[in-house]
C-alpha cells in the first residue's frame, strides 16, 4: 500500500515535470519547428522566467532581493514580460543573420545570465539560489496539493497548445510556413519576414519563461544550475526532435516520453554504488546525445511528423 502510494506520487511528479517540459518544447517548436530559428539559449530564458517569478512571489529575506509576496499570477505574467523584452533585444541583433549566429548569441545569453546570477548576490543570493519560493496549492493536504498543481500545469499546456494550433491555422501561421518554405517568395509577396521571425522568437521565449516560473514555484527553489545546458536546453531539443518538430502533438509527446526515459534511467542508475552512480550519469547524457544523432540522421521527422498541406519540400 505504502509502495503503491509512493509510485502514485512519483507518477504525479513525472507528469508535472513532463508538463513543464512540454511548455518548453511547445515554445521551441514555434521557433524551430515553424520558423526555423535555432535557439540554444532555452536554459537562459527558462532561468530568467524562474528567477523573476521566484523573487516576486517569495517572502522577505535578507539574502536576496524580495519580500514582494505578490500573487502567482503577477509572478507568471512578469516572468513572461521580462523574457519577452530580453528575447526582443536578442532578436534585434541576430534575427537578420543566419541561424548559426542566433545559436551563438543565445548560448551567450545563457552564459551572461549565469554570470549575473552568480555575481549579483544582493538580488539572487549568488550560487546558493533563491529558496522558500511559495508553491500554489501547498496549503492543501497531500496528495491533493500535488494533483491540483499537476492540473494547473496540464491546463496551461492545453491552453498553450490550443493557442498555437489556432495561430498556425490563422493567416499568421500560413505566412510563417510560407517564410520557412520559401523566404524570397514571401519577401516578394511583401511580407515583413523580420517582423514575423521576431514575433515567433519572442512568443517562444515567453513560453519558456513561463515554464521557468512554473518550475521555480514547483520546486520551491531555483539556483544558477537552472542555466545548465544539459538538462534544460539539450533535453528540450532532443524531446522536440524525437517527438517531431513542426508538430505540436509531437512536441508534447516528445516531452513526456523523453522525460520519462530520462527520469526512469536516473532511478535505475541511482541504485548503483555512489561512485558508479555519478559516472553513469554521464553515460546517460552520452546515450541521450547518441539518440539525438540517430534520430537526426535516420528519422529526421520524429515520431509524429509534420502534417503538410502539400508533399513537396526541400527543407527537411
Amino acid at each position: 500500500m505504502e509502495q503503491s502510494y509512493g509510485i502514485f506520487l512519483y507518477i504525479i511528479s513525472l507528469a508535472t515535470m513532463g508538463g513543464m517540459y512540454a511548455m518548453l518544447t511547445l515554445g521551441l517548436n514555434i521557433q524551430w519547428g515553424f520558423t526555423g530559428l535555432f535557439n540554444v539559449g532555452i536554459a537562459g530564458f527558462f532561468a530568467i522566467g524562474a528567477y523573476v517569478s521566484a523573487i516576486l512571489t517569495s517572502p522577505e529575506t535578507t539574502r536576496h532581493l524580495g519580500g514582494f509576496e505578490l500573487p502567482y499570477i503577477v509572478g507568471f505574467s512578469a516572468s513572461m514580460i521580462v523574457t519577452a523584452l530580453i528575447a526582443w533585444g536578442v532578436g534585434k541583433v541576430c534575427l537578420r543573420l543566419r541561424s548559426d549566429y542566433l545559436a551563438i548569441a543565445t548560448i551567450g545569453i545563457g552564459e551572461i545570465f549565469r554570470l549575473i546570477l552568480k555575481n549579483e548576490t544582493w538580488a539572487t543570493n549568488g550560487p546558493r539560489g533563491v529558496s522558500m519560493v511559495p508553491k500554489p496549492f501547498e496549503s492543501l493536504a497531500e496528495p491533493y496539493n500535488q494533483l491540483m498543481f499537476l492540473a494547473l500545469v496540464l491546463v496551461t499546456v492545453a491552453v498553450i497548445y490550443l493557442l498555437i494550433e489556432a495561430a498556425c491555422k490563422s493567416p499568421w501561421g500560413r505566412v510563417m510556413t510560407a517564410i520557412r518554405e520559401n523566404e524570397p517568395a514571401a519577401r516578394a509577396a511583401g511580407k515583413n519576414v523580420e517582423r514575423f521571425r521576431m514575433e515567433a522568437f519572442v512568443i517562444g521565449c515567453m513560453i519558456m519563461g513561463l515554464a521557468g516560473a512554473f518550475t521555480a514555484q514547483y520546486l520551491k527553489f531555483i539556483d544558477p544550475n537552472a542555466t545548465e545546458l544539459t538538462t534544460t536546453t539539450f533535453l528540450v531539443w532532443v524531446m522536440l526532435i524525437v517527438g517531431g518538430s513542426a508538430n505540436n502533438k509531437g512536441a508534447i509527446l516528445g516531452a513526456f516520453l523523453m522525460w520519462t526515459v530520462w527520469s526512469a534511467s536516473e532511478i535505475l542508475t541511482s541504485r548503483l554504488p555512489d561512485d558508479m552512480a555519478i559516472r553513469t550519469a554521464y553515460v546517460r547524457i552520452f546515450l541521450i546525445g547518441l539518440a539525438l544523432q540517430i534520430v537526426l540522421q535516420k528519422f529526421p521527422s520524429g515520431i509524429l511528423p509534420e502534417k503538410r498541406p502539400k508533399p513537396s519540400g526541400s527543407h527537411e
Binding site: V40, R279, V283, G289, L290, L296
Partner: peptide, 20 residues
C-alpha cells in the same frame, strides 16, 4: 543547421565521455 545541431550533440557527448 542540421550539422550545427549535430555538433551541439557532439559537444555534450564528448564532454560526458571525458567526465566518465
Amino acid at each position: 543547421i542540421m550539422v550545427v545541431m549535430a555538433s551541439f550533440g557532439i559537444m555534450l557527448m564528448v564532454r560526458s565521455v571525458i567526465q566518465f
